[in-house]
């Protein structure tokens, strides 16, 4: 997997996260698009790709947000690595399998993120289980849709190319 594509994906996710996601979902935007990209990269590229995607995406996200730099980076690094290891040992091809991985990845991320904040500050992160579950569900839904789109994309282009070739052969265009 090329680093440029991963960088582009992370950049796009950050741009959408900071503009559209918070606008659409209001103040309590229950989605983490950067995490979705990190998990997708880890599934497709393995633990090393997941680790670096998590590190870069998490650190940049931390720098842009109001929190401590490194907490999100650490959480996403761990999630990227663990999902990558899991993906390199098991087949994650079906939609329900991907849904489960995105969902569990989001829960692990939330656990790490909130856990580190609880260690650092007395008041912790003050978030509810419901919010964490909602976010994991939304992340999983978006992740599966993204994965399906990425799988269908190259196939659709190839089919269109073949169709054009057949037409040009038939009509001599």
């Amino acid at each position: 997997m090329k680093a440029a594509w991963v960088g582009l994906g992370l950049g796009l996710a950050l741009a959408l996260q900071t503009t559209l996601a918070s606008m659409l979902a209001g103040a309590g935007a229950p989605v983490d698009l950067v995490l979705v990209v990190v998990v997708a990269v880890a599934i497709a590229g393995g633990p090393i790709a997941g680790l670096w995607a998590g590190t870069v995406g998490g650190l940049v996200q931390d720098a842009l947000s109001g929190g401590v730099i490194g907490v999100g980076g650490l959480a996403k690094t761990l999630v990227g690595y663990v999902v990558g290891q899991f993906g390199s040992r098991f087949m994650i091809a079906r939609a329900w399998q991907q849904l489960l991985v995105f969902f569990c990845g989001s829960l692990v991320h939330a656990g790490c993120f909130i856990g580190v904040y609880s260690l650092l500050f007395d008041e912790g992160m003050m978030t509810s289980y419901g919010a964490v579950l909602t976010q994991a569900t939304v992340n999983a839904a978006i992740g599966v849709t993204l994965a399906a789109g990425l799988q269908a994309g190259p196939g659709a282009i190839e089919r269109r190319r073949l169709r054009r070739r057949n037409l040009s052969r038939r009509f001599g265009g």
Binding site: T19, S22, P30, S65, G66, G67
Partner: peptide, 11 residues
């Protein structure tokens, strides 16, 4: 021009 980069903070 933008919201927070994470869902956990309000900036």
């Amino acid at each position: 021009i933008a919201g927070d980069a994470t869902p956990y903070f309000r900036t």
